[in-house]
Design a protein around this nucleic acid. Structure first.
Lengths: 347, 347
DNA sequence: GCCACGTTTGAGAGCGCTCCCTGGCGCCCG
DNA sequence: CGGGCGCCAGGGAGCGCTCTCAAACGTGGC
């Protein structure tokens, strides 16, 4: 039952059920075109022997692996320490499970790893790849895109804008930012500052664009470039207050920097939201709910992004072997998920 | 180069290099016992053709997979939203990479998944498993332990205490807790409260034990069971202050609950650390450094735990194929990593 | 009652690789 | 200078599975 007793093979099951290997194979893979009594007999034999198909042998002939690589490029540790990827992984995992696929996690550390990952992906060990790349100058996505592996990107890649065959899933960063800023405007605020994220990330750029969409002709000095960290948020607010002492609202590009902003505002004696209204982005719960006051922010459904990425990669493939392998690429080249404004106390 | 052009096989490389398949195989797998000029020729052919071994074919005969499953049981979403697993995964990933192994991530959602994971693991798709189980009543670890797959647990499992063949890696929760409480005592504090974690987790239990080790004969009413969350920490502090208004220190079982404690103390007009000193556990940076005041806490090297788990699982196996497959199990049944007290402003 | 056709089942090849074993060759020693 | 030994390369089997193809088995219609 346990130990080194080598696992039963198809052959063994066939012998036990008194049929041929081919028949067992058919039953194991869906049982189409096998008469009921035989199906039953085979099923029982499988059960009794505790047969589990040898995936290696199967892959060898089918050239399918029922496995998908998830590549997370991680130039900074910070990125990895937030719940973002965790949630996305969850979504991915759920969807892959539904498709009987495994999740092979590839974390890259520095440039050398690109080679390793590239080799792995083009080595045909997986059916596809889900790639997260946050930085515009990251060579990895390009590499992968050239590796000839079906790929879906998480977040809008910074290059190949109009390229038809790049598939990605992103949230509506720009639209979400617009909603946030419009909300501030609706509150009667006029001197609205924006704390950006690192502008080598498309999400930060898109949020900035959304801000600009609403504040057309606004004072460019009300935009301070920052880095998605609480400390950066603090610095940015100090800068903003210096440039514009009667600032009455802040839109921070993420919750972390918003939390820093909150702290700096309190320290400077500004009441939130009375004097200055604050809105963040992400709705990262441990942060957004715990700030003082709780943060109004833009929520994105991160887990759903993950699910969608997996679904897109697996294409029209139904939960196991049915249907066409892949709808010939008329997939949308970019899918953008909606965001919603979550009102709490800060604005 | 790209596209569907089927990848080159050993055969192709052999033809190109003018040698036999066997020779190419030898070269690819270390090149022992092949004369230099041939090695060179084969290497070049591999390079030119962009040959990558077919892992499925290889596994089929070697019965090795160069892959390790990482199983994360996740009854609560909260658990996953903290950076803990992320860091551990990093450590694991690094070590596996060094051993040319892949990381197959298995996230479980609810009971049904146990079956799936069990089948997968006993299906012989991976060389071993790294399992994280946080709760005492989780049936998963038991299941896996019975599946006949080499396994290393992350964190002390709640059962099979003395069992010789259970291998796990944990931090020194008890010792770390002792250090923290001793530090408070050294500060002259005498009315020290403890906010525990969920006591169905061994880490929480061990930290409580450490607290008790130092506070022998202490008032049991100074121990409040909580849940590792900020909100729980707040509640616990209110409870503690009610029971003991002149409380002068709090040891919280993790940083998150410590942050809640900090807030509740401020709200109740207690100054930290003047009136009440506070120590957390984990040194979860985004939290510990950002609290007001910054949190004194117990650091554990989470990434190293991950590395160690992987190293233990892979046994004495050197970076690829050399050495014995596995030192016959005289491995230590539990490895406990040291913790260090990180002094910041809160105590 | 017989033949043509559709449906099930079985036989066999082969996926790409490793590894055992044999054959060939150079070299050392007698 | 010849025999034996050791080292290196190649041949070939076979890992467990899928999938094509052909055989066997009905079944219905004429």
């Amino acid at each position: 039952m346990s130990e080194t007793a080598s696992r039963p093979t198809l052959e063994a099951v066939a012998a036990r059920a008194g049929v041929s290997r081919a028949t067992v194979s058919r039953v194991v893979n869906g049982g189409e075109g096998v008469r009921e009594p035989l199906v039953e007999r085979v099923r029982r034999a499988v059960e009794e022997l505790g047969y589990v198909p040898n995936q290696a042998a199967r892959s060898l002939v089918t050239r399918r692996h029922d496995a998908v690589a998830v590549v997370i490029a991680e130039p900074e540790t910070r990125v990895f320490a937030d719940p973002f990827f965790a949630l996305q992984l969850r979504g991915i995992s759920k969807e892959l499970t539904a498709h009987d696929s495994q999740l092979v996690l590839l974390l890259t550390e520095g440039r050398d790893d690109h080679v390793r990952v590239g080799r792995y992906l083009s080595g045909g060990h997986v059916d596809g790849a889900l790639v997260f790349s946050l930085h515009l100058d990251d060579p990895l996505p390009g590499l992968i895109h050239g590796a000839g592996v079906p790929t879906v990107f998480g977040g809008r890649p910074g290059w190949g804008e109009g390229t038809r065959d790049i598939v990605y899933v992103d949230s509506d960063n720009r639209g979400g930012a617009r909603d946030a800023v419009r909300h501030l405007v609706g509150l009667g605020r006029t001197r609205i500052g924006h704390i950006t994220g690192p502008l080598d990330q498309t999400s930060a750029v898109d949020r900035l664009e959304g801000f600009r969409d609403v504040m057309v002709g606004g004072d460019p000095r009300l935009i301070v470039e920052s880095d998605f960290t609480p400390a950066g948020g603090e610095r940015a607010v100090r800068e903003l207050l210096e440039r514009c002492p009667d600032l009455d609202a802040v839109f921070a590009a993420n919750d972390l920097s918003a939390s820093g902003a909150l702290r700096a505002l309190r320290e400077r004696g500004r009441r939130v939201p009375d004097d200055v209204a604050v809105i963040g982005f992400d709705d990262m719960l441990p942060v957004a709910e715990q700030t003082d006051p709780p943060l109004t922010t833009v929520r994105q459904d991160i887990e759903e992004m993950g699910r969608l990425m997996a679904r897109l990669l697996l294409g029209g493939r139904e939960p196991r072997g049915t249907g066409p392998e892949r709808e010939a690429g008329n997939a949308p080249s970019g899918v953008v998920l909606p965001t919603t404004l979550v009102r709490r106390a800060s604005a």
